[in-house]
Amino acid sequence: MTGDHIYPDDPAGPFEPPPRRFEDREGRPIVVREVDGSDGRSLADDREALVEMYVAFDPEDRAQGIPPTGESSIREWLGHILADEAINVVACLPDDGVVGHATLVPDGQGGYELAIFVLGDYQNAGIGTRLIEGLLGAGQRHGAEHVWLTVERWNNPAIALYRKVGFEASDTENFELEMCLRLDPDAQEESAADTSADPDSKAEAETEAEAETEAAESESESESDSRSR
């Protein structure tokens, strides 16, 4: 990929940075947090939890060759994804098992490429939305401004999720659809102030365009998220 992405003029967000705690639609307690050695979790622990998630990942949910299959390929790939300059956010269960992962990897041209994966049993539960919002919140906090991704054209649920958070299609000629989003680096302070408030009090109703992974899901439903807290 070259650096000639076309980004929207207006920034999306602001996005609430991690950590974010919520119950998914199955009532499971989920924490979205950044993989940065905070929260008493070492990077090595998170790396192992991510290896475990990707070993369990359904090959049917792969997209454009990732995640790779087989533990050694997964470890090699994660070595690249978990590099210092990359931004990583995971969705965890109370036992710290990782059920979702979203990442921003620098493209060497000042931008970041985004990808998100959620384990099959945890798809269609609203986790993907919190995960991608948390990732963009973390990106904002780290001063990222330009984010892009490619997605298979038939993957309507994923495209719906990306659109919902503000991605716009930027290249309609390639085999894969390219989408871009602009973050507002000045939103950092604003959202940092948000974290001092109880995140659970922000129970705004939002529409969940069900798209938890890059991969297609059987159906794209749209429903109001009724978190009552």
């Binding site: 454009q64 060759g65 790939w77 690249h80 493209d107 990808a115 390639n174 085999f175 894969e176």
Partner: peptide, 13 residues
Amino acid sequence: SPLGKINIGRIGE
């Protein structure tokens, strides 16, 4: 791609 995604080129497609 930087993330390891394969993108088929226009000629290949």
